[in-house]
Simulated assay, not measured.
Amino acid sequence: MSITILPVLGYPRLQVSDDIEAVLHVPFDDDDRFLVGISDGTLLLGTYDEQLRCTWSVVREGAAVVRIEGERVDLHWSVEWLNVGLYSSAMIDRSEPVPLPLFPDLDRHAA
């Protein structure tokens, strides 16, 4: 199970095929960036240039295996839904969580 995401040439739209079949409108604001959230937890960042060519990057990895080849994105995982939205830096938290001690009682007495 997988999906393929391809930009529609000359239009701010995405063609999604395989498990989900749809053409999605990409919202535009003052920024040429947009986010694609996928049900497995993957978050993709898409960026358009002046000719509406799209480049991709993975902002947050989910359960899927993501393969980016040029303007094409392949996600190998069972996908139930995906959402396209405006870019917002508030949506992307790049901080890593602090690991918790495995045995807090033992760590306290070890010092």
Rank of each mutant, 00 (worst) to 15 (best):
M1P: 07
M1H: 08
M1Q: 09
S2G: 15
S2C: 02
I3M: 10
T4C: 05
T4L: 06
T4Y: 03
I5E: 02
I5W: 01
V8N: 05
G10L: 04
P12R: 14
P12E: 09
V16H: 02
V16P: 05
V16D: 13
V16W: 00
D18R: 11
I20F: 11
E21Q: 14
E21R: 07
E21K: 11
A22G: 06
A22L: 07
L24P: 00
H25F: 10
H25C: 04
V26Q: 10
V26A: 12
P27D: 09
P27C: 09
P27L: 09
D30C: 02
D30K: 08
D30G: 12
D32A: 12
D32L: 04
L35M: 12
L35P: 07
V36K: 04
V36L: 06
G37R: 08
G37S: 14
I38D: 02
I38R: 01
L43N: 02
L43V: 09
L43G: 03
L44T: 07
G46R: 01
G46K: 02
G46F: 03
T47Y: 01
E50I: 07
R53V: 03
C54P: 02
W56S: 11
S57N: 03
V59C: 12
G62E: 06
A64G: 14
V65W: 01
V65G: 02
V65N: 10
V66W: 01
R67C: 14
R67F: 06
I68T: 05
E69S: 11
G70I: 08
E71I: 00
E71T: 10
R72S: 13
R72P: 00
V73S: 11
L75E: 03
W77N: 14
S78V: 12
V79K: 05
V79F: 02
V84N: 07
V84F: 05
V84P: 03
S89M: 05
A90T: 11
I92H: 04
D93L: 04
R94Y: 06
S95C: 01
S95A: 04
P97E: 10
P97S: 12
V98W: 07
L100N: 11
L102A: 15
F103T: 11
P104E: 09
D105H: 06
L106S: 11
D107E: 14
H109P: 00
